[in-house]
Structure formats: C-alpha cells, structure tokens
C-alpha cells in the first residue's frame, strides 16, 4: 500500500518539476553582483578558456556544455547562426566534461548554460536551457556596439 502512495507522490513531483523546468527553459537572467567579472572586478577571476574567448568590441556568448547533454547541441544550433548574422556578437562552445572547474568557477550547475560577456569580461546575463534567439537578441541589444561607433574608435570595421 505504501508503494502506491510513493508512486502517486513521485508522479505528482515529476509532473510539477517538469512543468517548472519547461517554464524556465531559455529564461534570461541579468547579471547579479558577485557573478564573475561584475562589480568593477570584485567578482571572481574569469577561467582561462573564457578569458581567451573574449575579443575587443564584441559581446561573447560563452556556452557551457558537456558531452552528455543533448540540449547543448540544440543550443549550439541556435547560437552559432545567431552570432554569425549579428554584428559584434561571438559564440564559443566550451565543453567542460573534462574541466569541471571552469563550470565551478562560473557557478554553472546545469548544462547548457550560456553566459554573455562584455569585451572586458563583465558578465551581462546568463541563460539556462536552450535560448530563444529573438528574446536573447533583445536583451543583448543595449550591449552590442553599433558598427559606425565601433569604427570611429577602433580598427575601422
């Protein structure tokens, strides 16, 4: 009889958890104080592979993936083309299967998580799950440097 109650409880819990996960998938979370690179460099230092991916005049989407992650492939398929057609936006996919310390340093517990970094390595926002391209682009808009402005004070487009 106990087993039947456990069964009912488990089914209810699974449906509730699934609904929450479904609703949270692709949600954009703005950077908080204490995140990597925030608050004028008071946050923890950036892991080396992330620092290496940053480029001047560019917002970099750092995707944290593992080999054991099917939605990571979907995320790559969304972000790759998005970065390719957006001026000043880069996408890097970091497989942390064998370097979990990178995920640890960034405070990432589930994959895929995508973190947008400014050219100076300041965290702008992060998305867990498969991002929705239109929403993500909207949130990044204020941080993307327009082509003309960029040309006036750097290498010239």
């Amino acid at each position: 009889m106990t087993g039947l109650w456990v069964l009912v409880a488990t089914v209810v819990a699974a449906l509730a958890a699934g609904a929450v996960l479904y609703a949270r998938n692709g949600r954009i979370r703005p950077a908080r104080p204490g995140d990597t690179g925030t608050a004028g460099g008071q946050g923890p230092a950036l892991p080396e592979p992330v620092a290496a991916a940053l480029a001047p005049g560019t917002v970099t989407l750092v995707q944290i993936s593992t080999t054991f992650c099917a939605p990571c492939r979907h995320t790559r398929a969304v972000l790759g083309p998005l970065a390719a057609r957006t001026e000043g936006l880069d996408h890097v996919d970091l497989d942390v299967t064998h370097q979990p310390e990178v995920a640890h340093a960034l405070g990432v517990l589930r994959t895929p998580t995508t973190i947008a970094f400014s050219e100076h390595g300041r965290e702008l926002l992060r998305v867990s799950g498969v991002p929705k391209p239109a929403e993500l682009l909207g949130a990044l808009e204020p941080h993307l440097v327009p082509r003309a402005e960029r040309g006036s004070h750097s290498e010239g487009g």
């Binding site: 699974a14 699934g18 479904y22 099917a70 939605p71 589930r110 994959t111």
Partner: peptide
C-alpha cells in the same frame, strides 16, 4: 521527466 517532458535529468545533472 524523460518520457513526458523529454528532459534528461541524468544528462543535465552531470556537472
């Protein structure tokens, strides 16, 4: 979770 939502708990919890 896998059957109903196509969500692979084991995969995502790897980290």
């Amino acid at each position: 979770l896998n059957a109903v939502f196509n969500f692979c708990l084991g995969c995502e919890m790897y980290l």
